[in-house]
C-alpha cells in the first residue's frame, strides 16, 4: 500500500535562480542543499506548511538522465512553458496574488472563480507554470 509522496521534481534551468524564486519570492523553506561534487547540487525545498514534501529543483543538464540532445530539448520545452508542474493552495488567494505580484512573480491568469473555489496561474523563473488555488470546502 502506497502511503505518501515524499519527493517530487521540478526541472529548472538555473538552480541558483530557482533558489531565489522558490525561497525568496514564494517563501518556501530549504530542506536539503547538498553539494554532490563536480558541480552537481541536490537542492530541495518544501512548502511552508508541508515540511514532509521535498520538491527537488532539478537542473536540466547533460548526464545519465538526459543525453545532450534531450537536455537541449528539455531546456527549450521548459522555457516555453510546456510543463504544468503542480497545484499549490493558499488560504487567501487575493492576498497571495497581491503579495507575489508585488515581489515580481508573473501570473498568466488572475484570480478567477472556478467550480471548486478560486484559481490563478503563475510561472516560475524557468517557465514552469503552477495553479495557485483557494479551495472551497467540498
Amino acid at each position: 500500500m502506497i502511503t505518501k509522496l515524499t519527493h517530487t521534481c521540478i526541472y529548472v534551468l538555473d538552480q541558483q535562480r530557482a533558489y531565489d524564486f522558490y525561497v525568496n519570492k514564494l517563501g518556501f523553506l530549504v530542506h536539503t542543499d547538498a553539494p554532490m561534487g563536480e558541480g552537481v547540487r541536490w537542492l530541495t525545498v518544501t512548502p511552508p506548511e508541508q515540511p514532509e514534501l521535498e520538491i527537488t529543483l532539478y537542473l536540466v543538464s547533460e548526464g545519465p538522465m538526459f543525453d545532450k540532445e534531450t537536455a537541449e530539448t528539455m531546456r527549450v520545452l521548459v522555457s516555453k512553458g510546456t510543463f504544468g508542474a503542480a497545484v499549490f493552495t493558499c488560504k487567501d488567494l487575493l492576498a497571495t496574488y497581491e503579495e507575489l505580484t508585488a515581489k515580481g512573480v508573473v501570473f498568466k491568469k488572475k484570480p478567477t472563480k472556478e467550480f471548486y473555489g478560486f484559481e490563478a496561474l503563475f510561472v516560475d523563473d524557468s517557465g514552469n507554470w503552477f495553479s495557485l488555488a483557494q479551495l472551497e470546502r467540498q
Binding site: H7, M36, G37, E38, V40, Y58, G63, P64
Partner: peptide, 9 residues
Amino acid sequence: CFVEQMGVK
C-alpha cells in the same frame, strides 16, 4: 535513484 540519474560518483 536520483544519485544514479545525476551521475554522482
